[in-house]
């Protein structure tokens, strides 16, 4: 029998070039490949699992998020919720980003223990599966695909989160005197070949919030904004921001506020 040769026009290959072999051309080539992959982003696999989790009755209280969790647009409503967070939630008396809000619903509505979720909130390199919370975040984010970021910055509490996040981004400390802005405060900067978005600009902030949740082809893992903030502080030589804390929400509010009015393309795909 004749085996077909029609196979793959686009295989997700995980690659690692020696640093010295990377050039600007390689960057441009990779960008083309990445754009092509947006059409078949493996993030969709995590969306599917997230949707199942959203609708399933789970946790000690045996309720689904679909029947209990209000992301700001009404109980169970996910369409357009992602691009309108962070926002203020009166029931929690806090401004929350999307991931933090889902965690809140899981603890308050479903009865999960926060410590259990926070124990391993991110997919490790080469872990076969992403944590439930990552799948849920990916599902909720995907339900805002092709909608404009519309964080309610006119709300004083959201504004406070935004301004505090802005001040946090400028805060220098630690052995290397770094702040977020050391790398992300000006246009056209790179660490090695990695382009660094200027998070104070609308374009740069959009890159920040567009990227996460995102599928990272290296290692084949799905990662969220909460993870991105966490790993940035590692590289900043800081201690660790607590998972789903106000500190992380503030930074996400700062970026989302700067990205307001621009189109969200749905979960990202990254090198």
């Amino acid at each position: 029998m004749k085996r077909s040769i029609v196979m793959a026009t686009a295989l997700t290959v995980t690659w690692s070039l020696p640093a010295a072999a990377q050039t600007k051309d390689a960057n441009a080539e990779f960008e083309k490949f990445r754009a092509e992959m947006e059409e078949s982003n493996p993030a969709e696999l995590f969306e599917l699992k997230g949707e199942e989790l959203w609708k399933a009755k789970r946790g000690p209280k045996n309720v689904s998020l679909a029947e209990s969790c209000d992301l700001g647009q009404g109980i169970g409503k996910v369409e357009g919720a992602w691009v309108k967070m962070p926002r203020y939630f009166a029931d929690a008396d806090a401004v929350m980003d999307g991931e933090r809000r889902i965690v809140w619903c899981m603890t308050e509505k479903q009865g999960f223990k926060f410590a259990d979720i926070a124990k391993k909130p991110f997919q490790g390199a080469n872990d076969n599966n992403a944590p439930d919370i990552t799948n849920l975040v990916t599902y909720v984010a995907s339900a805002s695909k092709n909608m404009k970021f519309d964080m309610p910055l006119h709300d004083d509490k959201v504004r406070d989160a935004y301004e505090t996040g802005k001040a946090m981004a400028a805060y220098r400390a630690g052995p290397y005197d770094f702040s977020c802005n050391t790398c992300h405060g000006a246009d056209g900067k790179r660490i090695r070949m990695q382009n660094l978005p200027n998070l104070s600009s609308p374009e740069g902030a959009l890159r920040g919030v567009q990227g996460w949740p995102g599928y990272r082809m290296t290692g084949g893992v799905m990662l969220t904004s909460q993870w991105r903030m966490n790993d940035c502080f590692r590289q900043q030589r800081f201690p660790e921001p607590k998972y789903a804390s106000q500190a992380v929400t503030n930074l996400i509010a700062y970026m989302t506020g700067n990205a307001n009015g621009q189109m969200y393309k749905g979960p990202g795909i990254k090198r």
Binding site: D160, E163, T164, G165, K166, A167, M168, Y171, F233, F238, P239, E240, P241, K242, S245, Q246, A247, V248, N250
Partner: peptide
């Protein structure tokens, strides 16, 4: 806001 940022960082970060 700088003070609020600092207070938030001190409350929400942990050694690792």
């Amino acid at each position: 806001y700088r003070q609020l940022a600092l207070d938030t960082i001190k409350r929400d970060f942990q050694a690792k």
